[in-house]
């Protein structure tokens, strides 16, 4: 096994961690898994690619367009597909079907608008995807930046949860009815979370695009492993998601190098199943008890 294997594992692990965090942002105040999250990631990449290549916007401008567009779509999804379901009953699981429907609609529309061809996305200024041989390690400046940005984003999200709004989200996650009694508006938090979760998914797509290209295939390639990272890192735990993302990315890369690339999917799922059998609440979760 060479050092390059670890680099590949860290780069892919960063993307899995970001997808897992975007799941968590939505999940915390709503207890909803958004099955359209992969499509939101893909849409972020496609909107960014169009804004930067077709509209000619600078990198930062295209990023802003992508984040706002995908954030608004997340908000629309919440209004149309999630809020009406949760309004009937907080424990209604009809959102499984409705978010899946949103996923299918987005995927169909994106296919019609952008077509099947992938779009090349340039990294931000000062960074490059040209691989350098750095003391025997094949790496490029964009990959280094992606790993750093992932850490920064997760820490930033964690800081948000320390603010008053963030604590309200945590309180809602703990007990929605009790939070309501304390003057917190869970519906409003739900709307914000879908906007932010959508925007974060869009950001993940933008960050993934220079490596994986902006294409309709981007969502499915990240969704499953991102979901696995969220589960292994304990649902709702962002630091757990970060560590689990890297664990999955590294296991995938090392498995491919040491065993065979043909087994890399199997290796990941063996890892996930084993961890969840040993720790059903994920690496950082605790059994939840509630006295009534």
């Amino acid at each position: 096994m060479d050092i390059d294997t670890l680099v590949r594992g860290l780069v892919n692990g960063s993307l899995y961690a970001l997808v897992a965090v975007s799941f968590n942002i939505l999940y915390r105040p709503t207890n909803v898994f958004n099955f359209a999250q992969g499509e939101l990631v893909m849409l972020g990449a496609m909107v960014f690619a169009s804004a930067s290549t077709l509209m000619g916007l600078p990198w930062i401008g295209a990023l802003a367009v992508a984040l706002v567009a995908v954030g608004i779509l997340g908000l629309i999804e919440e209004r149309i597909a999630v809020a009406p379901v949760l309004a009937k009953s907080q424990h209604n699981t009809g959102w499984v079907i409705t978010t899946l429907a949103v996923s299918l609609i987005i995927s169909n529309l994106v296919g019609r608008v952008w077509g099947p061809d992938p779009i090349m996305v340039e990294p931000p200024p000062l960074l490059s995807t040209q691989t350098l041989d750095w003391t025997g390690i094949q790496i490029n400046s964009y990959q280094i930046a992606l790993i750093i940005v992932t850490f920064v984003m997760v820490l930033a999200i964690e800081r948000v949860y320390r603010t008053r709004h963030g604590k309200a989200v945590l309180a809602t996650a703990e007990d929605r009815e009790a939070a309501l009694l304390r003057g917190i508006d869970p519906a409003k938090l739900s709307r914000w979370s879908f906007f932010l979760g959508g925007a974060f998914a869009g950001l993940t797509g933008v960050l993934a695009a220079p490596i994986l290209y902006a294409s309709t295939a981007l969502g499915p390639s990240l969704l499953l492993k991102g979901f696995a990272a969220a589960a292994v890192g304990s649902i709702g735990n962002n630091r757990g998601a970060l560590i689990a993302g890297y664990l999955i990315g590294l296991t995938e890369a090392i498995g491919a190098s040491v065993l065979s690339p043909g087994y890399q999917e199997a290796v990941i799922f063996v890892l996930v199943l084993t961890l969840l059998l040993l720790k059903p609440h994920g690496l950082f979760g605790r059994p939840f008890t509630r006295t009534v």
């Binding site: 294997t5 590949r8 780069v11 892919n12 993307l15 993934a208 490596i211 994986l212 295939a217 499915p220 390639s221 990240l222 499953l224 995938e252 890369a253 491919a256 190098s257 690339p261 043909g262 890399q264 999917e265």
Partner: peptide
Amino acid sequence: VQVYPITAPDLSAY
């Protein structure tokens, strides 16, 4: 003979 899944985000190992 290297067989890769079409959704794999990284094909360099193959």
